[in-house]
Amino acid sequence: MKAILEATALGRRFPVGEGVWALKRVDLAVPRGAFVVITGPSGCGKTTLLNLLGGLDRPTRGDVVLKGLAYSRLDESGLARLRRTEIGFVFQFFNLLSDLTAEENVALPMRLAGLPPAEITSRTAALLEATGMSHRARHTPHELSGGEQQRVAVARALANDPAIVLADEPTGNLDSKNSEDIMELFRRFNREKGQTFVVVSHDPGFAEHADMVVRMRDGEVQALEEREGTGAC
């Protein structure tokens, strides 16, 4: 199965004190349509890895290639354009823009990408419908519960129909019921739309249904478990 996202010899060093190698060397290939879960103890570099995969940070060494496009060949605005159209993010703390309503938050990536207004309106409605948030479309984030905010965030991540969705502990701040809902949402989009997911999570619920589980330790991949049915599409 062809990899949609590939990391080679990826390393990230933070220049504090003597320098901290948060990520030492990671090689990873994410097949198209796969559901990948990254786990590992706290501080092992999961977030660092996800940030590099999403082009939110630059590696100290190594490179990431998404759909044949190497990040190292892109300047900052090229990388921004790539994030805009090809990558969806879901964060632990939801990170909705507090000045915007739920539907405006979902529409934002599409507006950044310059989609026609009519299409934005219909896609926004469809995404809110799919995440079960239609009835809260006009509410601002602080009028929503954590679970609701995360659903809106999922809708936002899927707005531009990205090649890949990256989620950093998306259920880390939710109770078990809401966590289950979010997990179910991810699985559904993965199953029905063939959306590729890379999720950092301690939640065993994610790992259970994953096509691939990446276990990390000390900035390196300790074990890589590929499950039955890898490369769902």
């Binding site: 605005s77 921004a80 354009r81 805009r84 990170n95 000045d99 990536p109 990408a113 936002r156």
Partner: peptide, 15 residues
């Protein structure tokens, strides 16, 4: 900071 960071993460360019 966070909000502006999110805006960038979603693809807003530095400029």
């Amino acid at each position: 900071k966070t909000q502006l960071g999110v805006l960038k993460a979603l693809g807003a360019e530095d400029d």
